[in-house]
Amino acid sequence: MSKKLLFTPLSTFFNRTLTSIPQRFSHHLKQSLHSSAPIIPSPPFTPCDNLCYSSPFGFLRFCRKISCSKSEENFQTTCWNCHAVPQSTPFLFCQSCCSIQPVDHSIDYFQIFGSERKYDVEGIDLEGKYKEWQKKLHPDLVHSKSQKEREFAAEQSARVIDAYRTLSNPLSRAIYMLKINGVEIDEEQTISDPELLAEIMEIREEVEEATNSEALNDIRSQMQEKLQNWSNSFAHAFQRRNFEEAKKAIRRMTYYCRVIEEVVKKL
């Protein structure tokens, strides 16, 4: 087992979030689990948000399991405040009484942005949608409401921030797409691919030897090109549901992103 599996996110113990442990488990999510089943007989993880770093909902890894074993009866489909039936999906905000709804983790990041699950996000106005949501959900705007709703606001708004951040970056978007398909990536895994290893050595040397900003910028644009290429191959692999290939692409992308970061630091 990798270390990651052992590690309990601290947020698990963080009392503020305990109030909002989701008691439901969506049909949608179950479907996606089924669809990935033939490839990975027993997915080691339940699909979960919060992939890279920020983990306001990291505790989910646990409570999901608990809620899995529970029934799906208390699936909530009406507004907690006015009991109105949602007029639109995703249901983060009640249009009838303007109350913010509790976080429903079965709504994935793509649904938040009103999109199907696809890697190409060119056509989605992420920034615009993100701001639209924030205008309804941001905790700064609900301070006159009840403590309960203020907590919902803090969590919903944080989740939309996470969703936006995750989907707007090609690498984190790729990792997320695998994750919601039940495929986990260990980002820290050691690289064993000899081809990539050789390339890494070469690039590392180049970065070390680069002394002027021109050379560094040159490396940066090379890396960006490679990143784009591998991002494309991820898209292809994912489409064919070849998750091994997709993981390989992600490892490459992770590495190129790191080089870009390093180069930028030196610039």
């Binding site: 270390k3 590690f7 996110p9 601290l10 700064d140 708004s157």
Partner: peptide, 12 residues
């Protein structure tokens, strides 16, 4: 030992 340091800035 794994020591987890978590920082949280809330809405306030």
């Amino acid at each position: 030992p794994e020591i987890n340091i978590c920082m949280d800035i809330d809405a306030a």
